[in-house]
Amino acid sequence: MALAGRERVWAEWMTAALAGDEAAYHRLLAALAPVLRANARRTLSQMGAPVGDAEDIVQETLLAIHLHRNTWRQTDPIGPWVAAIARYKLIDSLRRRGRRTEVAIDDFADALPDDSADQEEDLGRRQVVQLVDRLQGRQGAIVRAISLEGAGIRDVAAKFGMSEGAVRVALHRGLKSLAQLYRSGDA
């Protein structure tokens, strides 16, 4: 697959996502995950760090991409934008793990997802379960219902007797808190 073509599709999906197209956004994030995974695994193995940490890094990077998607402009190439966020989060994550490192990723030219990296790594998962469990109160309950149980906004609103707007606000705050939990380095 031509890289330029792949990134053009990503840019189209992101453009649609920013206009409110949830399905396009889901496709985009699902397409980014294996690329981020291959990238994280390769860097971790180069550093001699446990490759099992890759999934944590993938999730933290996806959260960062999500919470900062306001910084992408339709006129910008999306590949370097994603790569810059991935590099920032990788370095941050390795630093938290107490490793000094230089991570050189200018683009994803050689980070095509291979078959082995397509499979999500189970090793690091228990930690993430703890993180989402540590989200407090209503926010935490809503993030868990939508992620772990796959509920929709409407289901959650009915379940908690809230308006859909209030559920969306709580979901957004919950995801910001989750990103904060990652950053605090307890993962």
Binding site: E22, A23, H26, S147, G150, G152, R168, L171
Partner: peptide, 9 residues
């Protein structure tokens, strides 16, 4: 599962 939550936000 995380992606599902992100897409809903």
């Amino acid at each position: 599962e995380l992606i599902h939550a992100l897409a809903a936000d």
